[in-house]
Amino acid sequence: MSVPIELRDVSHFYSPGTAMQVAAIKNISLTIEEGEFVGIIGHTGSGKSTLISHFNGLLKPSKGTVLVDGEDISQSKEVLRAARFKVGLCFQYPEAQLFEETVAKDIAFGPKNMKLPEDEIARRVAEAAKYVGLRPEMLDKSPFDLSGGEKRRAAIAGVMAMEPKVLVLDEPAAGLDPRGKKEIHELIRNYRSRTGSTVVLVSHSMEDIANLADRVIVMNHGEIAMNGTVDEVFSHASDLQTMGLNVPEITRVFTALHDKGFDVPPNIYSVKEGVRILRALLEGGVG
């Protein structure tokens, strides 16, 4: 089985050759394994979006190679085009991409570009709509008549309908209210458990990543600062804070307790877990 995405020593410069040359990402090497749920975090301007634009060849690396399914995507137009469909990229505020007369037609835009037969397109549209929780009667509406959250979900469905091997989502819940955010996270989780596909989630919220991802890649100033399981990364809470990232409240409480000498692990990131440990601690009669 080949690795879905592999980056080898990739750098990307903006305005190359001029005085304003800026390295957006520097010497990035990483692999995304089959079936993984990877979270990418970093503060604004840390190179997250530049990084994911390399996954499907929207940006060409200034240096290094990008392999999708084991093939170098810069070798030919065909491989690049195939990579576009293997890696489904959903940008921030994806509702800006809606343009068709009906929601169904808009979701079908990707599959149509893949030149799939009509019945297969119809199946995929229905499936993707189900994943994102759009009711069938909504499919005949104009996408511009939907509410903000529904638009967002319709746009995500447009990427899911391509049935990519890897689904990459850039801040899919940005600008939504807590309920909308929860819905989006729920649908990502659902999608993954039903299709078993690989998912990459970009966010600057540690809490979201912690709740969803298996592995976390932390970006800082265009470089990979940390790369490991959620537990590993969260045990460096103070480092994360110096990188301008918000550690979940509960983690901060536990780090402080740990530093004060209490016998608790510092890398707790869910309230449920925290309560369990505190209760055990109290019953154990410490303090």
Partner: peptide, 30 residues
């Protein structure tokens, strides 16, 4: 918008004049 549509496989570079003009619809409507 161009990047978003390209990510959905929009082909903006190839084809004749009419095909290319049509390919602009997904960009200009949004």
């Amino acid at each position: 918008i161009m990047n978003a549509q390209k990510a959905r496989g929009a082909d903006l570079e190839t084809g004749g004049l009419i095909k290319r003009a049509k390919a602009l619809i997904p960009i200009f409507i949004p």
